[in-house]
Every structure is written in C-alpha cells, then in structure tokens.
C-alpha cells in the first residue's frame, strides 16, 4: 500500500521570511501583505522551511513533553495553519520530483511547550503596490503620472 504524504515548501522567491525564537516574520512580495507567526507556529514554519511534512510536524509537536491537549488538537491546529498558509500563498505544494532535497531532515526544532499557532496578517503595505494596470500613455509611450492633465502639457 502506498502512503501519499503531502509536502509543501515556502513560496519563494515571492515570499521572504525570518524565524526568531518565538516568531516568524513572513512577507509576501506579490500581495504586499506581511505576517507574524507566533506560538508554536514559528517552529512549524522552521520545519516547513526544512521540508518536514505536515504529519511529522504534528508528531513532533505532540510528542513526549509536547502538547497538553493531545495529538488530535495539535493535528487540527497544524492542519488549520497549513490551510491558512496555503490560502495566503505563503506555501505551495511540492512537486513529486522536488521531494528529495528536503528528505532526511525530519526533526522539528522543539524549543518550548506547545502553544497554538497564531498567524497575524498585516495589510497596510498594499497601498504602496501598483495594483491597477497602467492605462494611459503619452505620445512617446511613457505612463502619465497620476492626476496629470493632458491639456497642461507643453
């Protein structure tokens, strides 16, 4: 019987990230959104970066001395986090041929007792992105600055 394990990787280069002791800071360069991943989420993120599959992350977090609410609760939390990370395009599924690179590094870095992962999203950078396509060009083919009046040209 073949057991298929879903694997995910960080959606780089669109996504850049740094992991600290109790928080991962993640930036999506394409949407302008950035994220604070806290609780045991920082450990989950570090594991994703190293190619550890979801079920092994759950096993690591729910292991001896780990989660107080048992493997089921941890499994739901981690699965919910994976769904959020996928929805925000911070992670993407790994194609079958790309699995080997992450294989063999299965341990998750346990630093503290389990805490439910919290992914906080910040959207205040979106206004800095050019979200609308450029519509109007001048006679030389250059975009007109916002608000510039055609009649005012010399």
């Amino acid at each position: 019987m073949v057991h298929i394990v879903a694997r995910f990787r960080v959606n780089s280069p669109a996504v850049i990230h740094q992991t600290f002791e109790s928080e991962a800071v993640i930036v999506n360069l394409e949407t302008g959104d950035y994220f604070s991943l806290r609780g045991s989420g920082a450990e989950v993120w570090e594991a994703i970066v190293r190619g550890v599959p979801e079920e092994e992350i759950v096993a690591g977090l729910a292991g001896e001395g780990g989660a107080g609410d048992g493997r089921g609760g941890v499994g739901d939390d981690v699965h919910g986090l994976f769904v959020e990370l996928l929805r925000e395009a911070l992670i993407v599924p790994v194609e079958a041929g790309a699995i080997a690179a992450g294989a063999g590094v299965r341990q998750i870095a346990r630093r503290r007792p389990y805490e439910r992962p919290i992914l906080e999203k910040f959207t205040d950078m979106r206004e800095l992105l050019l979200l609308d396509p450029i519509h109007e060009l001048d006679e030389m083919g250059w975009p007109r600055p916002a608000g510039e009046e055609m009649a005012g040209e010399r």
Partner: peptide
Amino acid sequence: AEALRALAPSSIF
C-alpha cells in the same frame, strides 16, 4: 521580530 516588523515592510515596499 517586533523591530523587524516595524522596519522591514515599509523599507521593502
């Protein structure tokens, strides 16, 4: 991490 969140996003975007 808090300091990075204050500094990095606007520096990048």
